[in-house]
C-alpha cells in the first residue's frame, strides 16, 4: 500500500487490534482506496500525531485526515488523547470520530464536551461496519470540506 499515492489517510487508535482488522477490511471494501494506519494505545497515537518516538519519519506516519478513536484504553485513554488533540492549534482541525463499544450517555456527552466530531458505537455485524465506514467516508471525505493541511 502506497501511502503517498492515496488522497486520504485514516488513523485508527484502539487497544483491540482485531477491531483494527475489521475496520481496515470494512474501509477496504468501500470503493476508493484510502490509507489506513493503526496504533494500539493512547501513548502511541500521541507519538504518531506529534511525530515523536518511533514516528519521527512523517513518510511512515502520514498526517491523518480522520481519526478513529477508542475511548476505553489502558494507560492514556481516549478522553486524554481527545483533549490533547483538541488543545493543539494544528491537530484540532482533524476530525475525530469516537468509535467505541460504549453506548453510555455519560461517555457520549463527555466525548462531545472534549471536542469529538462524532460518536459512533461499534456495530456488531460486519455489514453494519461497512455501512458506518461508507457513510463516514462519504461525509468527511466527500460532503464535508476540511482545511487543507
Amino acid at each position: 500500500m502506497q501511502a503517498q499515492a492515496q488522497k486520504y489517510s485514516v488513523l485508527m487508535v484502539d487497544d483491540d487490534p482485531e477491531d483494527g482488522v475489521l475496520v481496515k477490511k470494512a474501509i477496504a471494501s468501500t470503493g476508493p482506496k484510502v490509507d489506513f494506519q493503526f496504533v494500539a494505545s493512547g501513548a502511541e497515537v500521541l507519538d504518531y500525531l506529534f511525530t515523536e518516538g518511533r514516528f519521527t519519519d512523517r513518510s511512515s506516519a502520514p498526517r491523518p485526515n480522520l481519526i478513529l478513536l477508542d475511548l476505553n484504553m489502558p494507560g492514556v485513554d481516549g478522553f486524554s488523547v481527545l483533549k490533547q488533540i483538541k488543545s493543539d492549534m494544528d491537530l484540532r482541525r482533524i476530525p475525530v470520530v469516537v468509535l467505541t463499544t460504549s453506548e453510555a450517555e455519560t461517555d457520549i456527552v463527555k466525548s462531545y464536551d472534549c471536542g469529538a466530531n462524532t460518536f459512533i458505537t461499534k456495530p456488531s455485524s460486519f455489514s453494519d461496519m461497512i455501512e458506518v465506514m461508507t457513510s463516514l467516508k462519504s461525509y468527511w471525505f466527500d460532503a464535508a470540506r476540511l482545511p487543507t493541511a
Binding site: L22, S124, F126, S127
Partner: peptide, 21 residues
C-alpha cells in the same frame, strides 16, 4: 451483558467477514 457484547461482536463481525470473503 456489557462485557459479553464485546467478544460477541467479534464473533458476529468475523463470522460476517468469513462469509463475505
Amino acid at each position: 451483558s456489557h462485557d459479553l457484547q464485546e467478544p460477541l461482536r467479534k464473533i458476529q463481525a468475523f463470522g460476517d467477514l468469513l462469509k463475505s470473503e
